[in-house]
Design a protein around this nucleic acid. Structure first.
Lengths: 206, 206, 206, 206
DNA sequence: GATGAATGAGTCTTCATTCAT
DNA sequence: GATGAATGAAGACTCATTCAT
């Protein structure tokens, strides 16, 4: 039987020191997950790696799941950040070029954490709260939707912009993430990013 | 620490009865996984559900992982089968139509097992042997590659057929599978299949 | 909890074939015990090694304990046989020489099965029926007692012949058996046998 | 297949309380072994007897084998202690008398734990680390060797002192231990000790 | 007599979590 | 806030043994 899935963080850290502890714990969790996989990561091992006691760990996170969820959320946020910092490109470049840059940035980020995606992400991503995941891809999707409006003239006729923006984001995320296992070489070389960008561009443009 | 990951089946069933037992065990495993998720599924529960003793379960599968791997492999085989039975369409129909039929069939299959994809597939798919997964998508990819040669005249110039065939298969699999969570409505309605088909067609054709 | 300790053989084999089966099973048991130790020896492995089915094994021996007891008894019988075939020496040679020959023969026998004594004998000897063990050492002791009467004139005054005969036999058995672990080199070279013989002779003689 | 034979203690107790726990666990193990034998002793039963949780048991000992090894080592240490506290007698008394006292003390110790030697010692002593056993008998042997040097003038010519000291110790241990089964009456009455002492003295002295 | 698939009670062991200090 | 010894529910897995064929 699964333990209860309380995945909310237990307390908002209000002090500098406590914030540190939370970050230290998330870092340690990530490191242990990367080394041992989800199944092999134990809370005691994580606490030891973080250099805090197991009691302290449970002071900040009510369950192991919450801890892992924290890492997942942080990862999602970083993925979103990677895309968000390229948002302005959609106003500055032709759509194809902006899409290519966004895909390249996303794939580069995945490549920079490739072991993480390979070892435990698929095993543990379901612990991330669905809502936060939707928020994250929703943010990215509305960003893309804005970009598409901006380039409306060049879009293929009949395109459902709202759906397409979302679909394109989820496709990019899905392929970049699974690419860590399925296409490591192409992920590193940039080919995956470029083919992905090509596919998305042709899907969107006239 | 993770238990050992022996995922090979323990004995080749040589008698009619034994083959039944293996199938019964895989069926039961699937049912229990669907109801409880990977973490919540216990071998004792699976054995009880299958109507065999726990000893018999371990007679055929050396570990829980091997049992789940068996279910994953069977699922992969069914996905492949779904595509393989549509292979002839690529010789009979325009490429767009054949692709659409293939995507529809794949999405329909995923929809028919949607709970399974939603509850445990992402959590447990890594237990499937990578080799078998590559075999499976490789088969499908070479099928697609053949189809592309057949329609060579209409392909977009500069297309790397070998890569594209593989890429297209993996994209379809990734989106159909994650669609169970991300787009249940569109998976059911067929919209996901059609948008996917459109994206793939535009990626491939001139 | 220990299983019941039924250690009697289940049926007296009356046919040639069945006798063979019993011997084959005891041989296989010995081989498996030697290779895996008592804890690691399973009845299924023993049956497979013997080339018979597990059902057949249980046809002849009611429990694993009975099987191991059979091997222990056979070993005791062989030890006794080793001594018994030297009994005549006590009538032919000076006592010291007869004792030395007996000790050498016993140690040589132990050396010839040294792996067996090293791997499982101590772990499993308690499964041999105490009665049979006493019979065996009792036989040897009465043999020795007879020898001592024959050499009565040379014995040390005050010697309790009955006790001494038994004591000497048990000492020889204990040291030869534990010598497999404690003195492998001296067991092989014969030094253990000679020192043992010297100790026993000086204990007995004036 | 035997479980792994990790027989090292898992953590050095650093606090008063923890030392107690280890001792409590060893005591409980001894009691359960005495009542049920090695095969019948379960870790859960031992933990319950000790009044600690099963988790605590595994906090200090990684396996059942390690726990039993701990008891064996403690027993060996007590045997050695029994001899060591008599070491001074070898300087104060004639050798025969010192030997007799040592044998009596050893046999008395065995008698004081006779059930233990009878029920599980032979079944489980192989779990003690060979090295610790050699250390223990080596200590005793060098003690005896010192004593023999001290009485060199009275030793029989040609005696190999180094070997003899070791041989004498191992003989005494083997006979006292097996005496629990073979000679309970003589063990209790002291006859076994005296005959053993006589045998060893005659082996050593001129 | 022989077979071997099936049984299932019972074991060891793990690890998330608590709480007294 | 921090500690970490202690907890114990729960689960994977073994293997001696049975019995229908």
């Amino acid at each position: 039987m699964p333990r209860r899935a309380r995945t909310h963080q237990r307390r908002q850290p209000v002090q500098r020191r406590a914030e540190d502890t939370v970050a230290v714990l998330l870092d340690a969790t990530e490191r242990v997950l990367e080394a041992q996989g989800f199944h092999g990561a134990t809370t005691n091992h994580i606490a030891r790696t973080a250099g805090v006691s197991i009691g302290t760990l449970y002071h900040y996170f009510p369950t192991k799941e919450a801890l892992v969820a924290g890492v997942v959320h942080r990862l999602w946020a970083a993925e979103l950040e990677t895309l968000a910092t390229r948002a302005h490109l959609f106003a500055e470049l032709p759509l194809e070029d902006a899409i290519r840059e966004a895909c390249r940035a996303l794939c580069a980020y995945v490549w920079s954490r490739v072991d993480l995606y390979r070892t435990w992400y698929s095993e543990a991503s379901h612990l991330g709260e669905l809502g936060k995941g939707l928020d994250m891809s929703g943010h990215a999707a509305s960003m893309v939707a804005g970009a598409l409006e901006h380039h409306a003239a060049r879009l293929r006729p009949g395109l459902d912009v709202t759906f397409a923006a979302d679909f394109v984001v989820k496709t990019a995320l899905a392929l970049a993430r699974t690419g860590a296992r399925d296409y490591p070489a192409e992920l590193e070389s940039g080919k995956l990013a470029d083919e992905l960008a090509l596919m998305l561009s042709r899907y969107l443009l006239a």
